[in-house]
Amino acid sequence: MLKTGTDRVKRGMAEMQKGGVIMDVINAEQAKIAEASGAVAVMALERVPADIRAAGGVARMADPTIVEEVLNAVSIPVMAKARIGHIVEARVLESMGVDYLDESEVLTPADEVFHLNKRDFTVPFVCGARDLGEASRRIGEGASMLRTKGEPGTGNIVEAVRHMRMIQGQIRKVSAMSEDELMTEAKNLGAPYEILLQIKKDGRLPVVNFAAGGVATPADAALMMELGADGVFVGSGIFKSANPEKFARAIVEATTHYRDYELIAELSKGLGTAMKGIDISTLLPGDRMQERGW
C-alpha cells in the first residue's frame, strides 16, 4: 500500500529544509541564482513583499506562468503563496505541482473568518504565526510547517524577533505547567487543547518553525537561528539588495554557521547596501500585514 499526503510525508518535507534558507523569486533567472547560492527552496511570486507594499491594491496568487517558469527552472522544491482562505487559488497551485503552499498574510486575505482546511490537501502548507495560539490553530487546521509572520517587506527584523521570542517563551511556559492548568491556558491562547498537550509533552512544536518577515542581512538570519528558528525565509532581502548573488550566498552560510561570528564578519564585508527598510512605527495600521490571519 502506498500512501500519499500523510502527516509524516508533509511534515517530513519541511524537516528536510531545516538549517536552510528559502528565497522569494519572481522569475526563472532569480530562481537559478537562488539555487546556485544554496537555497533549499524558492518561493515563486509575482512581486516580492516590498513591491507588494509599494504597489498597493489587492495582492493575489502569482500568475501561473511565473510559477510554471520557476518550476521548470530549478530542481529544488518550489513554494507559492495563496490568499488566506482562498480554496481555489490553493487548489490551482496544487494542481500545477507546487511542492509547498504558503497560506500567506502577504497577500490580501480572501476570507476574513476562516483559514483553509489544509488537511484536505495532498500538498503541504506553511503558515505564519505570531504566538503559540495562532501557531496551534494553524497546526490544528493541518499546517505542516510554520514561520514567524514578522512584518514582510520591511527589511526590519524587530517583528520576527518579537514573534519568535513570544512563541519560544510560550512553549517554555506550557512545558512547565501542570496538566491541571492546561485547559485554561488553551482557552487563553485560543489554542486547540490536544495540540497544546502534545507541545507540552514534547517541549517543542510538532512541526518545523522558520523565521520570516524582515530578514535583510546575514546577521539577521543568524540572529533568528540563535533565537530557535529551524531555518529562514528571505523575501525582499535578497533581490532588493545591491548584490543579490553575494547576499544570497552570505545569508545561506550565516544560517548554517550562525554561531561562527568571525565567519559572519567575513561574510558581511563588502556586501553593498542591504534593502533600505522601513521603521515599523511609520506603518499605518492597515499596512501591517501581520494583523491578517485569525
Binding site: 499526503g5 510525508v9 518535507m13 511542492d99
Partner: peptide, 26 residues
C-alpha cells in the same frame, strides 16, 4: 515526482526486516 507524489510504503529490507515503513520525500 514532486512533493504531492511523496509517499509512505511498507518495505522489505534484507538483513533488517520485512515490515519497514519507508517514508519517501521527493
Amino acid at each position: 515526482g514532486r512533493q504531492k507524489e511523496s509517499f509512505e510504503a511498507e518495505l522489505e529490507i534484507k538483513g533488517v526486516g520485512e515490515d519497514v515503513n519507508g517514508v519517501f520525500i521527493r
